[in-house]
Design a protein around this nucleic acid. Sequence first.
DNA 1: CTGAAAGCGCTTACAG
DNA 2: CTGAAAGCGCTTACAG
Lengths: 338, 338
Amino acid sequence: MTDAPNLSPRTIRMSDVAREAGVSAMSVSNAFKKPEIVLPETRKRILEAARRLGYVPNGLAGSLASGRSRTVAALVPSIRNSSFARTVQGLNDELSEQGYQLLLAVADTAERERSAVEAVLRHRPDGIILTGNEHHPDTILLLQQREVPLVETWIMSEPILDMAVGFDLRHAAKEMGRLLVARGYRHIGFAGYAPAERKRFLERQQGFQAALREAGLRDDLLFHADESAGFAGGRLAMEALRAREPRLDALFCVTDIFAVGVLFECQRQGLAVPRDFAVAGYGDFEIAAEVAPGLTTVRTRGYEIGRAAARLIVERAEGLPTALRVDVGFETIIRGSA
Amino acid sequence: MTDAPNLSPRTIRMSDVAREAGVSAMSVSNAFKKPEIVLPETRKRILEAARRLGYVPNGLAGSLASGRSRTVAALVPSIRNSSFARTVQGLNDELSEQGYQLLLAVADTAERERSAVEAVLRHRPDGIILTGNEHHPDTILLLQQREVPLVETWIMSEPILDMAVGFDLRHAAKEMGRLLVARGYRHIGFAGYAPAERKRFLERQQGFQAALREAGLRDDLLFHADESAGFAGGRLAMEALRAREPRLDALFCVTDIFAVGVLFECQRQGLAVPRDFAVAGYGDFEIAAEVAPGLTTVRTRGYEIGRAAARLIVERAEGLPTALRVDVGFETIIRGSA
DNA sequence: CTGAAAGCGCTTACAG
DNA sequence: CTGAAAGCGCTTACAG
């Protein structure tokens, strides 16, 4: 009836560190959380013991006890899309600097978002970052039932559940529309994302249309392609819209990817850009500066959106006063394509 | 001395559901975890009570008690890189299907990886997915001290800490080198990633060199650019290598991004591809099929790498027998550029 | 099939 | 400045 030998290399607990350092578990906890309240001398002993044993605190237990998980969940519609990849990078950088961990879920439909929100809620994140402001009713219910801080990104218009980080999508598109008009183009089409009704998409289209209408031009040369269409989306838009309006002389695309597709298509057809045909994009992805001619485009700030969204959550979690809206702005970048 | 009114909308706990359903908390737990052991009748009552209250289990408490977090951590060097973006997508899809949550950390240096591993370990993931097999010694120590399942990705060569998912990098590069040789090119350069010593990078270079040597060609036309160089990396490589070997007639790039950069540069210089100059890439990113001529490239399976890595962790967590190595293969895609 | 009770590894007023 | 003890919300043998 002797004690069973300690066969498995058990995980080091706080109490192990305490014993090793000859103090109570509480002092170990304090040495980490509130170093100023424990004597430098004992603190040193504790930290050394922790080092020696390779102690890594169990955050699960800590979170359960403290009610804070130091975890932030982000839901993005896609990770392959440069804009969201930048946002995730921004989230990661800010959160890791602040000692928080990112829970990522990619969900490309409202239905998937709903189940991802529930999945993520189980881990009791200190905040949730969503993309856009259109959600499944159940998602909203689930979220409003708790007091978890929320940031909606890539959008600034109501209804916003809690906080938002983005920029004026409508204005950005309007500015580009105006630029095309000012350049003298008169039959300007729009290559948007389907589904066109999605607000994150629709606002750009409406801004674009507003610019055309204020110039007295027709604003109904619209085409919508799935995000996954890639470069092909640009070609498809060009074909479809030229069929409807042979004089089509410019195309504004909701993504540089479509725009580059248009550029490639112009090359194939021997259309001189921007003389015969103009193209403008959205995103200022890396390729925009590389193609010839360079792509005139809207530079968005996906990375900053991620940083700011993370910052809002952390500030709120720390009980700091936080903004409810952060406008990161945009920039119109003029290169050779329009 | 009356009870304080329940002001704040407290989070629903398992015991609340139990009371609502008129059973013990244990039965609630069982109704979710081992539905077969509770009477269909009572189970129904429990599930309905849970629904009514909007109960979302506290996974933190569950994990602490059960020793399993249903969480998997992944460390990737970049999220902007298409290959890793695909891997993350694969991880997300597989994990969410299996009811696990992804903890993501992007860490682009061994030092950052080290601190990310520690950060992630606090959340007691059921497994950790790393990129490559070169790690900080402390990282290895930290990891080997616990019994957490590990998968190294995008590499198949020793030393492997535990499990690995990837393909034969050397072979893939060798095959492309041979193809260039077979096409008749004789002064073939290599545009690699810096730092060149990194094994994930080096093996491709060595495979490439092997192909040249077996054809009796010189194998020292090497250039290395930072991953962040983007399209410019291709141009820089071209300039540098042509300076060293004016007869340079082909370039094999470790990424389609560099390769497309080369293609753009050839256009600018009026070099006919593939007649005057050949380019081959690596990755088969979307753009490879869109540029003209299309890019001859190595198609890797980043998405499958993510899926497989996640699957290994989950299988191990569930106590199932698992493979230690998964080779997802690659494919040489021949288009017009070489 | 159902339940009382201990325990997971921390944190947090509260004493001393 | 330090520590004993309760509690966070689950899970899990173990009885009944």
